[in-house]
Design a protein around this nucleic acid. Structure first.
Lengths: 217, 217
DNA sequence: ATATTATTCAAACGTTTGTTTAGACCCCGA
DNA sequence: TCGGGGTCTAAACAAACGTTTGAATAATAT
């Protein structure tokens, strides 16, 4: 471990304050005070606030997305024709996120709240950074899911995946973990979410379920 | 209309900038410059930045939630025993939000992006304001949905509703409206979302679908 | 037309922001 | 023991922040 302790202390303090007050709403003074280090330490170790933000995300997301891809590969290699099952693919995407949200050692629910916040932020610089670094993971999952759901049109698939990501994001952010760190709780939530996602993804639109734009039919 | 024009101009400029850069990330100078009014006009008309934020939300959410409750009442009065159908209830909640997101006159997609942002913010003052002013609407819908889904445990219902709200929020925020203001587009999205929510809410958990916390089964 | 109120304006207030600087401290190899 | 690189620190920087002020202007009422 070549990195000093101060770096990690700053990253953790920044993670928590970013999750609570947003990126723009958190000052370097708040971070360094919370971390018990000197104000200038941030610019010494990271160079700027923007670089600190990226370091906060890299510390967690590198591991998360590696784990997701690993699970997806295992699921695919288990299938004879290399086509992963819908449920297996969903689990490969959802379970690592929920496990991480349950593991204080790796950010826990704090980082998940931060992630949920950022998902709805339009900050150009950060979105570009996340897309550059992790876009290939999302693309990979979308491809596999599309092959597992051959009856869905591209447009249907696009929207339903957005719904699933929204549900996952919101669930992670809303989690209060009253009975915290019970593994059973986590498994229950993961099961609920995968069930929900699977049902929503495979549902067949009834022929005349369309909603008239004006009034409820 | 006793209110002067400046008020509305400020509200619209603030709405757009808040959606793009967040509450803390938007300065009063940015707002007034964008609106073409004097810096001091905000404090003259609203008193403070905090009061301006609340006014931005009140302008849109009062109408949205009134519309939601009106639709819910119409759906309920149509049913013989006063028990609204699941689908009707979902439509009463979802359709007004999507219609608003499609109507530039009433905030359009801009306000919906702002709303999605705020949903994942932990800002205490704003959450308290929203909960105080609109909490009864959410409670009302949760009650009606609970009665329409009698087989679900309280916990199951709680989580699935969170999933639905997450999907709706995320869908609204992600909407880019490439082929904008086509009513057919809106109806399609509303149908997709209601289908998705209905399938997810009514799905029955398979007996042994539980995910083991460690490894994918 | 005059008095009164409502609105707009330029300027300045004291804080807080991110960043920079120059020196002190510490630890390890020479 | 000395020297030097990595780390930490107090202090200061200009810029941007929300808010306040007092006078100028516009609108309304008498």
């Amino acid at each position: 471990m070549a990195t000093t302790n101060t770096r990690e202390i700053i990253l953790s303090a920044a993670e928590g304050l970013f999750a609570d007050h947003g990126l723009a709403g958190t000052s370097l003074r708040g971070i360094t005070t919370h971390a018990g280090v000197n104000l200038a330490a941030v610019n010494y170790h990271f160079g700027s606030k923007e670089a600190l933000i990226q370091a906060v995300f890299r510390r967690r997301l590198d591991a998360l997305n590696t784990e997701r891809l690993g699970r997806l590969e295992r699921v695919q290699s288990r299938a004879a024709d290399g086509a992963a099952s819908l449920r297996g693919t969903l689990e490969a995407f959802i379970v690592p996120a929920l496990e991480m949200s349950h593991d204080p050692e790796h950010g826990g629910v704090v980082f998940m709240r931060l992630l949920a916040r950022v998902m709805s932020e339009r900050d150009r610089a950060l979105r570009a950074f996340l897309s550059d670094r992790y876009g290939h993971v999302i693309k990979r999952f979308a491809d596999v899911l599309g092959r597992a759901l051959p009856d869905l049109s591209d447009e249907d698939l696009f929207w339903r995946l957005n719904f699933v990501v929204g549900a996952l994001t919101y669930a992670m952010a809303e989690v209060v973990w009253e009975h915290d760190d019970s593994a059973r709780e986590l498994a229950d939530l993961a099961t609920r979410l995968v069930d929900f996602a699977e049902a929503g993804l495979t549902s067949v639109t009834p022929a005349q379920s369309r909603i008239s734009a004006g009034v409820v039919a």
